[in-house]
Amino acid sequence: MTSQATTANTIQTGVASNAGAKAGAGSKRSLSWLIPTLYIVFLMLPIYWLVNMSFKTNQEITGVFSLWPQSPTLRNYAVIFTDPAWYSGYINSILYVVLNTVISVAVALPAAYAFSRYRFLGDKHLFFWLLTNRMAPPAVFALPFFQLYSAFGLIDTHIAVAIAHCLFNVPLAVWILEGFMSGVPKEIDETAYIDGYSFPKFFAKIFVPLIASGIGVAAFFCFMFSWVELLIARTLTTTDAKPIAATMTRTVSASGMDWGVLAAAGVLTIIPGALVIYFVRNYIAKGFALGRV
């Protein structure tokens, strides 16, 4: 195909070579189409199985092997939406995740500005120290966290989990925002000062709108890592602020494992993530490169 296209290029004029290039691209697409599709099928299979299970009765799950529900039921979802022990888990999770996202982005904004615009004593060491906290294994911190937050009487509150998750989300937010801010020319700051803007006014009115997509991306990442983390969230909560993911571990009852409810709860934990991805889909590509491509 490629050789044909090049022959066309050498012999004929612009129009023909254009057509050749198009044909080449077309045949390549028909081949490359396969790989992402196979990958997506691989990604969707386990999720499909979970969704499938969530609409089955427990007898069907353990008794019959079927690729789709034979007698679809909403009973599993009904259990979750009528039992406060279940649905309060969702409210708790969303509360501390949102709280964490707001705190992380709010404190990271000025710090990222400082890192992107100024050099100061120990700046590089500080930046590395911040990053090491992103690298700290949660398992190391689980027990001391419990003792620290007990000492402050914060155990089983949403704010405790939100602050604890700042450990890895703040460094990440600083990192992402610093990347986006470095892409904004410094002349913009200087022009604004000449025009008589004070720093806070400049920051809020001019700078923040310029890096709005960066803030969105940072918020997305904070949301994501706080939403998926469980070890610390579970360690710091007992009943009132218990996250949904921890509630899921209680599906073993006297009558055996309640697979249907477990699957339904799993499906419901996927939904907020899916919604968030849908909203940031246009920034995802840039965001995953942390604004530094």
């Binding site: 969707m44 939403w227 998926v228 993911a245 697979w259 799993g266 907020p272 889909r281």
Partner: peptide
């Protein structure tokens, strides 16, 4: 592609575990 591919990244880690625990079980 982007939305479908990003989906596993936003599933809580223990739910990921649960999904695969169930998916790999010989009985169900």
């Amino acid at each position: 592609c982007l939305v479908l591919m990003a989906l596993p990244l936003l599933i809580p880690w223990n739910v990921v575990g649960t999904i695969w625990q169930v998916f790999g079980r010989v009985d169900i």
